[in-house]
């Protein structure tokens, strides 16, 4: 068994930039991101693949960073929530989540944003059911998911170039 302090080193593309990082070789991508790269935007809720809170994109696919070895990410493209906003401007999904209150405690939010981003990259006009299916691996205890769906739909519309605004009942309820 190698001693804990014998670190392995890999190079990867992280949020669009080349990065080298050294870490204990048994560490998962979750631990490497949070502890060795200081990117604490990626959260964790179980470390067993049972909640989706730790989702990040590896090669543009949302995966559970708690079950990906850091070593398996050599040469891969990793994207975390910290890489979503560009040039000081929120990604439309981030903007819509903030606008509608789709982030309550905000703990599951980074994973939802990345999973939703992967969905919109493949499907510019997802139905409500497709959104539910795509986000069925992410648990949220605060929102009941509804504001999350509405935020994804709002962001999708804006990303298609539509001047979409939230419905009145989304923000104020039914009359």
């Amino acid at each position: 068994m190698p001693p804990l302090d014998a670190k392995a080193k890999i190079a990867l593309e992280l949020n669009g930039e080349p990065v080298e990082v050294a870490f204990a070789p048994h560490k998962t991508l979750l631990e490497v991101l949070r502890e060795d790269l200081g990117l604490t935007g990626t959260k964790h809720g179980c470390e067993l693949g049972e909640c989706g809170t730790c989702a990040v994109l590896v090669d543009a696919r949302p995966v559970l960073s708690c079950l990906v070895l850091g070593l398996a990410c050599a040469g891969r493209r990793v994207k975390t929530v910290e890489g979503m906003a560009e040039g000081g401007r929120l990604h439309p999904l981030q903007d819509a989540f903030a606008e509608l209150g789709a982030a309550q405690c905000g703990y599951c939010t980074p994973a939802f944003l990345l999973a939703a981003g992967a969905l919109l990259a493949e499907n510019r006009r997802p139905t409500r059911d497709q959104i539910k299916q795509a986000l069925a691996g992410n648990l949220c205890r605060c929102t009941g998911y509804i504001k999350i769906y509405e935020a994804v739909e709002l962001a999708a519309a804006r990303m298609r170039g539509e001047k979409a605004q939230p419905a009145r009942e989304t923000l104020y309820g039914y009359p």
């Binding site: 200081g38 910290e82 905000g106 939010t109 939230p166």
Partner: peptide, 23 residues
Amino acid sequence: KALRKVDATAKVVGATKFADDVA
């Protein structure tokens, strides 16, 4: 009014520091 929460931006960019984020 329906307003953004004052901490909403920090939460959507992953900047909010939860207890386990303190090092």
